[in-house]
Design a protein around this nucleic acid. Structure first.
Lengths: 222, 222
DNA sequence: TTATATAGAATAATCGATTTTTTAACTGAC
DNA sequence: GTCAGTTAAAAAATCGATTATTCTATATAA
């Protein structure tokens, strides 16, 4: 499901990394909060060494701030950063989607349809939990997967995690969500038709709308 | 000099991280090599815990590959990856430079001239060691610094480190190097004149030429 | 009162040793 | 000779304890 690390074999360190990543993205820690390592150790039933290794990785990934001799903090949120993240998503995901449309083959088309279908079923259940989040991430990953650039995919993944810290600040907004869910299918449509320009335009619009949602939530939150 | 971590206060972990990063970028480890943690411990006179924390961060940063239960390896080099890195640099650094030219203020102009001057003095000494590398990195960072996007700067920094693994595979090539050094000054010129289009074009050419150098070295190496 | 100093508690970083897993060498059956 | 199974050695991951640093509260001096 998640290719953040090859979880073929798991270690305590890789497990707690993935768990913490999800919890950070899902907003289970307050922005700006100082992490109490001992408390984490207890809460997640994990030893100090694997925990610290995971925290170090998360800091390098950008989901934590590390300050020498004073541990780890959850990054604060700001309008400026949200704008930055959204505008980088516009540039990079748009670019990647266009390239994916140029290079994607029949296997990709099938995977796209599959990912969209799985997501739609989750949309309908109206249970927007971790399950939906995973399918949603996977769908967006599939859209850009055959773009041909490993580094572009890596940056997009990172931006998604950052963006979701804002998007997931509040509860779902059914009407906007409906529009966004519909766009997912239209994105697949345009991809299959290889209509690069229209696909790019829709992707831009999709990110813009998501940004509006995230911004509303951020402002309600602050 | 390097803002990879705030080295205001340093810990064993942050020191060994920075040292290893330099050594990885500088090619002091063979591509694909498996890192012998015990040997590293001895060589760098550092304990196991800070060393492992540094290795974890470097893996998250992309300068190492981590495989569960089988430690850390230096990523291999490939033509495809070099192409990817170079084309991402073209996109992102070009974008950043254009934005920097739009937003950079008088302080930036001064810093640009200063960075270019320091680099030129190092160019002339013909000693292309770590000292020159540091000034070169700093110069390129300064070029794009006021682009307005923290995430864009972060990605560019990462791509530079990756690119340098290829560029630094071989010894200097005086004639090409002369051209590239000259371009540094022309980049400053065009930035001061706020000639966005020309600046972008020159940046593209600069990265292209650097890519040619890196590619030659990669092919000679393999 | 304000600022500075300091002791004690809390926390971060690191160390040394242990446990777990992988790798390499060896064995014997086919 | 080759291959599966076994074992010893090596390496990775983790643990428990120690050391170093920061934070907090209190005391003292200007």
């Amino acid at each position: 499901m998640n290719q953040h690390l090859q979880p073929v074999i798991s270690t305590a360190s890789s497990r707690i990394y993935e768990t913490l990543r999800r919890d950070l993205v899902g907003g289970r820690f307050a922005a700006g909060e100082k992490l109490a390592i001992n408390a984490l150790k207890e809460h997640y039933h994990v030893g100090l060494s694997p925990l610290r290794e995971a925290l170090n990785k998360l800091a390098a990934y950008g989901l934590l701030i590390q300050e020498n001799q004073r541990g780890f903090r959850v990054p604060t949120l700001s309008r400026a950063e949200l704008d930055d993240i959204a505008s980088m998503r516009l540039e990079l995901e748009g670019m990647a989607f266009e390239r994916a449309i140029q290079h994607g083959d029949a296997v990709w088309e099938a995977e796209l349809l599959a990912a969209a279908h799985r997501l739609k079923r989750a949309d309908m259940s109206l249970e927007k939990g971790e399950e939906w989040e995973a399918l949603h991430s996977q769908f967006h990953r599939t859209l850009v997967a055959p773009c041909g650039s490993v580094w572009l995919l890596r940056f997009i993944e990172q931006l998604h995690d950052q963006f979701d810290r804002y998007r997931r600040l509040g509860p779902k907004m059914p009407t906007v969500r409906q529009t966004l869910d519909d766009q997912h299918h239209q994105l697949v449509e345009l991809a299959l038709q290889r209509d690069r320009k229209a696909a790019r335009a829709l992707m831009d619009d999709h990110i813009q709308k998501s940004y509006q949602v995230a911004l509303k939530r951020y402002e309600a939150h602050a």
